[in-house]
Design a protein around this nucleic acid. Structure first.
Lengths: 131, 131
DNA sequence: TTCGATGTTCGCTGAACATCGAACAACCTA
DNA sequence: TAGGTTGTTCGATGTTCAGCGAACATCGAA
């Protein structure tokens, strides 16, 4: 569609599907985003309610892959992202999700915890960035 | 793997991944199975608890495609299938799912009903085949 | 035996996805 | 200005998936 231009990319293209509006979230998109163990692992870490940035996630994949998965979560509406300088802060959209799909996130997280889905995703440093 | 032989297929190959055991179900497989609107529509119809057969589903896809989706639901452990002559009867594995992933199915179904996900899937004939 | 009904399986296609490394952009600091 | 940090995007690769029509298997009925 767009995103084809090499220059003037920073104008508005970069944030095309970012942080979608609450009522644009669809159930199947959310479930699709949650159908990958690595992404479930990310969501489990984000479930502490704090803001995390990219470096907070230690997953056994290349950082481009990690970036991809975080983008999937974002465009599906599971996370909220905020950029500050060169780093981006990511937070779970728990309230929006609970509004739109009541109990869904809690239910999935409970099951994921029980089975340790995505347990290979960890946080290397202490999440002291909650403020 | 197998399933390569043209003859003597009926022996055991046909039911390779069919009706998987309860504790072989994985959360991400279930969520992946539910990440398609058509399949959610099928599950919603199956949620009446009755046994349905293939012809009970009226979806705007070729029957080979419908067969594919029903197979996905089955191998993910969402449905139980039973064959009787040339027709197969399909039933939602609600109890097993509730055991393995408490509240998950109810939560998804509630959200799907609210948004009418998969509403284009219908049942042409009256489901009088419950007994 | 032949026919119709019922589904499944078999190629096949195009689209989407996961993954990687390399290149890039934006920012901060020395 | 020159690096270093941070994360995104690009291009390539291989896999999975949704979709179709055709062929097949199975059964019951004529």
């Amino acid at each position: 569609m767009f995103a084809k231009l090499r220059t003037n990319r920073l104008v508005d293209v970069r944030h095309a599907d970012q942080n979608p509006d609450v009522d644009h979230l669809t159930l199947t998109d959310v479930l699709a985003a949650l159908s990958d163990p690595l992404r479930v692992g990310l969501v489990r870490l984000l479930a502490d309610g704090h803001e995390h940035n990219f470096g907070d996630f230690d997953a056994p994949v290349a950082k481009s892959t990690l970036s991809h998965h975080l983008k999937v979560l974002n465009t599906a509406g599971l996370t909220w992202r905020r950029e500050e300088g060169t780093r981006c802060f990511i937070r779970l959209r728990r309230d929006d999700l609970d509004t739109r799909f009541p109990d869904l996130l809690d239910t999935v997280l409970a099951a994921a915890d029980r089975d340790d889905v995505g347990g290979h995703v960890s946080t290397p440093v202490k999440p002291g960035a909650e403020r």
